[in-house]
Amino acid sequence: MKKYFQSLGYIIFLGVSSYAIITAIKSYEKPFSLYENPLVWIALVAVVLVVLLKEFLNITALQQAEKLRMEKDGITPEEVDIWAGVKKIIKRWTKARALEEESEIILDHNYDGIKELDNSLPPWWLYMFYATIIFGVVYLVRYHVLGADNQATEYNKEMAEARMELQKYQATSPNVFDISTVTQLTDASDLTRGKAVFNLNCAACHAPDGGGGIGPNLTDKHWILGGGFKNAFNTIYNGGRDGKGMVAWSKTLKPNDIQKVASYVLSLQGTTPAKPKDPQGDIWVENTVEEVSSKDSIK
C-alpha cells in the first residue's frame, strides 16, 4: 500500500508542477530569461531532479531485486557482465570486428607486407554524413531557392528593431538624451534651474556672472572647444580637454540639468561681467563649423 501512495504522490507532484510551470510560461513575456524569471528555472530544475531521483531509486530497487534473484538461482552477481548491454550498443554503432575475426575481412593485396582490412564505415559516422547532406539540401532550398533572410539581412532587421526600441525608450525617459537631437531651452523656468545648477557647480571656476576665473570667460565669442549649444552640452557632459579641462559632469548631474546649464551658459553671451577674463580660444561663428557630438565641446 505504501508503494501505491508514493506513486500517487509522485504523479500529483508532476501534474501540479507541470501546470504551474506552463502557467508561468504563458504569463511572462520572457519566461526563460534567467535574470527576469529565475523561479521558472528553479521549478524546472526541481522537477528534473525529482524525476532523476525517482528513476535512480527505481533502478536501484530493480538491481537489488535482480541480485537477490541471481543469488537464489545460485548465480554469483560478480560473474555477470554489467556492461554487456553497453558493449552491445557500441558494437552495433561501430561494427567493430574482434582481433580474431580480422582474417575474414582481410583483402588480397598488400604493400610491402602491410595488409588492408575491408572494414565497413561506422554507422554513427555514416548517419552523421547523411544528416549533413540533408542539412545542406534544406539550407540550399531555404536560403538560395526560396530566398529566406541571410545573416546580413537578419542583422540589419535586428539593428533596425533595436534603434526603434531605443527611440521609444528615449521618448519615455526624460533623463536620456541623444546629442544629435537635444535642443537649447529658452523657457524662463528652465534657465532659472540652469542658473541655480551653474551657481552651485560652475561659478567657482567661471564666476557667478560667467566672467571667468580658473575657467574661461563664458560671455565673449571666444571658445576653446567650439561654441553653440551642442558643443556646450557636450563639453559639460563629457568634460573638457584631457589633463587640464574641467571634469565630466555626466557623473554628477542629470542630462536634463546639463541641458539647462548649457542653455543658461549661452544666455550669458553678450552680457558684461564685473571682471571679465581675457579671451581664450577662437571666435565662434554659428553655422560656419559643424557642431560636434563627441568629446569636443565648449571651453
Rank of each mutant, 00 (worst) to 15 (best):
V86M: 14
N201V: 12
D257A: 04
Y169S: 06
W124S: 09
S263A: 08
K230P: 00
L121W: 10
R97I: 09
Y264P: 05
W93D: 08
L8G: 01
K2E: 15
D73Y: 05
P38V: 05
T181L: 10
W223C: 00
M1F: 12
G215D: 04
P273Q: 03
H206M: 05
K115Y: 14
T181C: 02
Q63P: 00
A160Y: 05
F233M: 07
Y35K: 15
L57K: 13
S33G: 07
A43Y: 10
S17Y: 07
A61N: 10
I258H: 00
K295L: 06
T181E: 13
Y35M: 09
L253R: 06
V182N: 07
K277D: 11
S267N: 09
A203E: 06
Q280N: 14
V40T: 14
D108N: 11
W124T: 14
N256V: 14
T23E: 13
F198L: 01
M1S: 15
S293Q: 07
W223E: 00
E291C: 01
V48Q: 15
V285R: 00
I42Y: 09
N238F: 13
F5K: 14
K72V: 06
D209P: 05
A248S: 09
F13A: 01
I90K: 15
I105T: 11
N201Q: 13
E286R: 00
L268P: 04
V141A: 06
E286T: 02
I11G: 03
R92H: 11
K277R: 10
V265G: 01
T23R: 15
V47C: 05
D149K: 13
F229G: 00
K254H: 14
I90S: 15
T23A: 12
I224D: 02
N217H: 07
I59C: 04
K54Q: 12
H206K: 03
L121G: 04
K115I: 07
H222T: 12
W83G: 11
M70P: 01
D209T: 09
K260P: 06
I298Q: 00
I258K: 01
S293D: 12
T288V: 09
T76A: 10
K275N: 14
G239P: 04
L268I: 07
D209V: 11
M164Y: 09
L126D: 13
M128H: 08
W284F: 09
S120G: 08
E79V: 13
N175A: 05
K295S: 11
A61I: 05
V80R: 06
L185H: 01
K277I: 12
T252N: 04
N256M: 12
I179Y: 02
G270S: 08
I21H: 02
R193A: 13
G74Y: 03
E158P: 01
D81I: 05
D118L: 08
Y237H: 10
M159I: 13
L39R: 11
A248M: 04
N58R: 11
